[in-house]
Design a protein around this nucleic acid. Sequence first.
DNA 1: TAGATTGTTAATCGATTAACAATC
DNA 2: TAGATTGTTAATCGATTAACAATC
Lengths: 206, 206
Amino acid sequence: MRSKAVPDIVISRLPLYLRTLSHLAAEGKTITSSQELGQRLGLSSAQIRKDLSHFGEFGKQGTGYDIEFLQQQLKKILKVDRRRDVCLIGAGDLGHAIVLHHEMLEERGFHLVAVFDHNPRKIGKTIGHLEVIDSEAMPTIIRDQGIQIAIIAVPARSAQSVADTLVEAGIRAILSYAPITLNVPEGVQVQYIDPVIHLQHMTYYL
Amino acid sequence: MRSKAVPDIVISRLPLYLRTLSHLAAEGKTITSSQELGQRLGLSSAQIRKDLSHFGEFGKQGTGYDIEFLQQQLKKILKVDRRRDVCLIGAGDLGHAIVLHHEMLEERGFHLVAVFDHNPRKIGKTIGHLEVIDSEAMPTIIRDQGIQIAIIAVPARSAQSVADTLVEAGIRAILSYAPITLNVPEGVQVQYIDPVIHLQHMTYYL
DNA sequence: TAGATTGTTAATCGATTAACAATC
DNA sequence: TAGATTGTTAATCGATTAACAATC
């Protein structure tokens, strides 16, 4: 019998814990507590202990958590304990910004291996360390290299058909910057980034 | 007596409803239902009706919702029924991408009025329709123009001090692309965009 | 030892869902 | 009228919090 799945809302907080642990480590700390983590993140210490308890026991009573150790454990849980290949679709302004800041990805468990676009004027051009590849070659490259994660940075009108192609080629997780809800089969993960949604959320409180 | 506050999780869905209504309108539809909206967003129809019921009655039994009308009402609720000025701090690659795609903001209730940077090599340069202004002038401009919303696109190490300056100058809502939790006084809204958080969340399910 | 903090249980709190009368 | 869909109530479900024994 499979044990009950961990709630997605718990999973969604683990990357934040990981990020905060990096910051603490960068400040020279080696030990932290659920209280300190909670304070940094605006969460209760009980919630942090509860979240971690879904996966095991990582702390010591009276002492707290070893930062290095907890980082390793969280990386293992999130499956970012090894580098994961990512491809990017769309070599527009946003695509450029993403490629040029790929260290942000590399530092945190991802490796940007290819950029695709179908605009003939962009194909063959170099952005940072990567050459823009014709979208035609995308399925083959994704399949051959076993890439599982893709970032969509194309206009909203092309996003669904790009997503279809990606899924067909074997992509299992999509981060989309297009402001539309994508239709994907069961088992394919999708997350969205739409800055305007956040702005409109905040204006409610003005 | 003030009526009980609407849960933030409800507020966070309203921008998604608004976005989906635009899409339906763009497809030529004039009427929709809680069921159709739910289907598009992957939510139950009951949830959509419940969410809307916090603010009033916007539909007709047997018919559904007039798209145009519901859009207007949601815009009013979210206070994006008039254009809101936004300023941007950071004229790096990400800042460039944001300015060059400002139509995305304009179409959905925001108006990008200024870009700031403190790098002398960037000050005075033009990005799209805007000239990069020295950060020194930022507080004055924010105050004089009554800007309430800011987007932070600077490196993590400068984000907190930028936020402090913004708050001091009167900014009430901050959208930050820096991967750190910002400390701001009660009453100032902050939202974050960190693509890596989403990627790490998805890898859990791979 | 005394002080601190974990992991876990039970209680509380809040959000989602199902169901249906009202009514267009 | 018959069919459809809303707005709302009550029931269910799930997440957060408080509290504390265990123990470093």
